[in-house]
Write a protein that binds this DNA or RNA. Structure first.
Lengths: 101, 101
DNA sequence: ATTTACGGTAAGTGAATTCTTACCAACAGT
DNA sequence: ACTGTTGGTAAGAATTCACTTACCGTAAAT
């Protein structure tokens, strides 16, 4: 497991950040817009976005004074392939166990 | 997103629990054995296992006074299919954005 | 029946995280 | 140049979370 996956799982371990990710699924948004939609302050949103960005789950882009965030499909692809692999290993281990009996 | 997936992501949001999961990938273990292999106390291990169990990521089975934990492939399968779906949605959203330009 | 092994739970402590307020920098419009 | 808008960062408060010690219940062994 590489370190970005570690960061990604840490990042997704918080329900607020998962809610942000769910919101970004509906399209890119600016920080201020996000803060309006959530019950926490704008700096709090910024901090969550920083973690999501470090985990490569989101990308940001400057648009004038605004900063628009969107999902990073590559980050999720990495995570998905990890789960694919993991699931295969878990299933294999499980099958071996069953066949032993 | 159903609630088990929420619990699963919360559970995998901790590095110790991820290490436990990695260990279980090598096969089923008892609580005491797990505690020996980790630098934390047995009750701490028990508490982590409870969260992993609530998230349906592990299954436990009594063997005498021992309690053996193993991975639950179904739990990981659920999570994997979530990521499959998520990734598709994220990719679609991303493509739409690109095509707009 | 007692003892030993094993593991779950409760309560409290310490550490890590999340949040807020205050402040600052960058860009756009007047 | 000045003003308003936007958002990142710092510092500290508040909350959450992981961990330990202490205790209890259950099952096997003597």
């Amino acid at each position: 497991m590489n370190s970005y996956q570690q960061f990604a799982l840490d990042a997704l371990g918080d329900s607020t950040r998962r809610a942000i990710v769910d919101r970004l699924l509906r399209g890119p948004v600016s920080v201020g817009k996000l803060a309006e939609e959530f019950p926490i302050s704008r700096p709090a949103i910024s901090q969550h976005l920083r973690l999501l960005k470090e985990a490569r789950l989101v990308i940001d882009e400057a648009q004038g004074t605004r900063r628009v965030y969107r999902l990073n499909p590559e980050g999720f692809e990495t995570l998905r392939s990890y789960f694919d692999q993991f699931w295969i290993m878990a299933l294999t281990a499980f099958k071996e166990k069953v066949e032993e009996q």
